[in-house]
Structures are given as C-alpha cells and as structure tokens.
Amino acid sequence: MRMTPFLSLLARDIRLATRAGGSVALALAFFAAMATLVPLGVGNDLKLLARAAAGVLWVAAVLAALLSLNRLFQADFEDGSLDLIALSPLSLESVAAAKILGHWLTTGLPLTLLSPLLGLMFGLPPEAIAVLTVSLLIGTPAVSALGAIGAGLTLTIRRGGLILPLLVLPLLAPAVIFGAGAVRGVLDGLSNGALLFLAAFALAATVLSPFAAAAAVRLNLAG
C-alpha cells in the first residue's frame, strides 16, 4: 500500500468532516443530547443512573456514529468522486480502510473524549469512568468498521440511511455487551475480562471489515 494516496484520502475525509456542515459537531451534539434525555426519562436517582450509565452511553455512542455512516461512501458515489478514487493507485480495500480510520477519528475518538464528562454526570466513580473511556476507545473502531460494510452494501439505495442501522446494529451487539459489561464489572468489583473480549472483537472487525466493505463497494460501482 502506498502511503501518500492513503494519507491524502484520510486527510481529505477528516477535512470534510470537520468543516462547517461536517459530521463531527453533529455526532458530538447528538451523543450529548441523547445522554441528557435519559436522566430526564428515567429520573435523577444517581444510583440507578450509574448502573445504567455504561449501557446508555455505549448505545448513544453507537447511534451517534451510525448517523454519519451512511454517507461514508455515498457522498463520494453521488458526485462521481468514488469512480475517481476507485481508479487511483489505492486498492478498494485500502480505500475502505482509510475511510474507516477517517470515520473513527472524526466520530469514535471525539465521542470517547467527551465520554468522561458524561460519565461524571451519570454519577460514575472515577475508576468506572476510566474503564468506560478505555472501552469506547478500543470498541468504537469496530463500530466504524462494521458500519463501513453496511455503508458499502447500502451505497446505491436511496433510503439507505434507514436500512443501514438494521443491518449493522445486530452485528454490534458484542461491542455493546462487552463495552458496557466492562464498566459494570468495575461497579460490581469483579474482573470479568470484558475489555479483552472487546479488544479481540474490535481487532477482528477492523481487520476483516475493509475486505467486506470493498467487495460491497466494488459490486455497487458496477451497477
């Protein structure tokens, strides 16, 4: 793989996501707004909130990341850029990897950085906040990676944004289970190995997804 083309695609995607109208600010706002709505719904019992915090924040992070996923390839497909990118020296697998990395850097990472603040507001003790942050840091790449498969598959579907969550959410169940489970383990004073499982899951997903996503994009370009 050549580095200059890979980095240029990555840099362009980050630039597009961070410019006005980009997805970073939107994802962060969505994440915070969802996390705010939950205590309004379930009441302000801090004990209850602390128990629910990891699950709520993990689900909110997954949904916030999904928001921008359906545009991952579609934006480039609609204006013809994807053809130009496909004809570049990069293989479609590398293109998918660059897009996944770019998506994670502009959603998963900022969400992770915001999560300690929200964890604090949910009454999580410091050590649980630390584990929550670590779990999001190692788990959210899997969200971008598996989401990229869904984005590739729904590339040519006009209402693809509606189908994508249905395709991707069941696949992400292990990330939510292990991510939130790690934090609950801290609250219960158990060491349950969740972070290791989460890391293994995220690693496998990140390594394998570019191939599936590239296959999906290739097939849709031929349409």
Partner: peptide, 10 residues
C-alpha cells in the same frame, strides 16, 4: 457465533 458468545457471557 460471536454474538452468541457475548450474549452467553453477559
């Protein structure tokens, strides 16, 4: 199988 495993684990 991973989903199955994670749900069992939980």
């Amino acid at each position: 199988p991973i989903i199955e495993f994670s749900v069992n684990w939980q």
